[in-house]
Design a protein around this nucleic acid. Sequence first.
DNA 1: CGGTAAACTAACTAGATAGTTAATTATTTC
DNA 2: GAAATAATTAACTATCTAGTTAGTTTACCG
Lengths: 218, 218
Amino acid sequence: MPRQKLAAEPDRPARDPKRTRAAILDAATTEFARYGLGGARVDRISRASGANKRMLYYYFGDKEGLFLAVLEAAYAGIRSAEQKLSLLDVAPIESVRRLIRFTWDYFLAHPEFISLLNSENLHRASHLRKSRRARSLNSPLIATLGAILERGRREDIFRKGVDPLQLYISIAGLCYFYLSNIHTLSSIFGRDLAAQPARGARLRHVTDVVLGYLRREP
Amino acid sequence: MPRQKLAAEPDRPARDPKRTRAAILDAATTEFARYGLGGARVDRISRASGANKRMLYYYFGDKEGLFLAVLEAAYAGIRSAEQKLSLLDVAPIESVRRLIRFTWDYFLAHPEFISLLNSENLHRASHLRKSRRARSLNSPLIATLGAILERGRREDIFRKGVDPLQLYISIAGLCYFYLSNIHTLSSIFGRDLAAQPARGARLRHVTDVVLGYLRREP
DNA sequence: CGGTAAACTAACTAGATAGTTAATTATTTC
DNA sequence: GAAATAATTAACTATCTAGTTAGTTTACCG
């Protein structure tokens, strides 16, 4: 099948480095998410992006460099989405509900992020370690969550002594694991856990677990 | 480097199909866990097992058949360990504590199981779907957990209406995610989350989350 | 407008890869 | 004990793979 050329429109320059680079990143995200780093193929990325294979090496160095760029872009995506959350202008319980809802919806809408994280952990975060932006990928939500928990404690709604980092990890874990392992869980338990009623039940359950935990102790 | 022969001991038969097959499975488990299905190499498995590469195809058909055999063995392992748990001869709260502890300790001791599950989900459980034993890999703990929750409810300790499958998935998720994503989490948050104090804190936190959720509502 | 550099193309390469072939050897069975 | 079978070995194969080479073409700048 003849290769799709990018600059097919008459009024577009034949060379557009930003567009070429973005197209490669996009195709690479899909390929790495679908096959993992080890199973992804450079030639398939090249074909899907419409860019010559040489260009992958021209812009990203090598396959692993491309993978790191994909990962950084993925992190930038979730951080950007997190910034749009408004959590501090509502009551603490509602803040936590929103955070849970955001986390669940984000993972649901971005299964490629889950897959990329799994790949990166298989490789022991060796790519992130090379990244100059790793620490900047940290989530400012931890501090925000700390403020929410402190406010909830002062209002006598939440229990004392909750570690915001642990809670953040737990909220992520409760959502992530279900979606990341959706295939084996569905297979083992003989149910389609990806279907709507099951997903809705899962979100409600996660919310109950977290809010139940946060409830002030007698 | 000269290839290690299996039957080096004088009183061992030169041919031992069971031992050869077990050695291949063992080497394959390590290889698939370390590199994922796509990154694993058949020649490395052959070398590590000490068996001729032809034997991998003789016993398992192909690389994917070998992967399925590894996965089934891994599931058999956790089911066997679950059977040794005794949960019904103690009070409900202690039962739940034991289940959490078991889950955490098992994933900690078997990082290869986590990695294999991640690989299988990347491949959409396509191997498990071919397995004739998938449903038998189901956990009988779900029913046990149901009994525990019902007993706790009757004793007015636990809240009403807890879905044992959801709770089982949540306990697994709270433990699994932390360990599965240990590398990216440590990298992003600039802490060694695999070190002892952090692990202990994590287990305590998970226990508090689950028991906090289960606590009877006022 | 010409020179230069950047962006791009097509073909190539050296090594890797899963799987196969053609045996040989050890064990089992009658 | 000989024949048959199963388990094993060494070498091979066809294809795949990431990355490279050697250009060409387009855009930019003075």
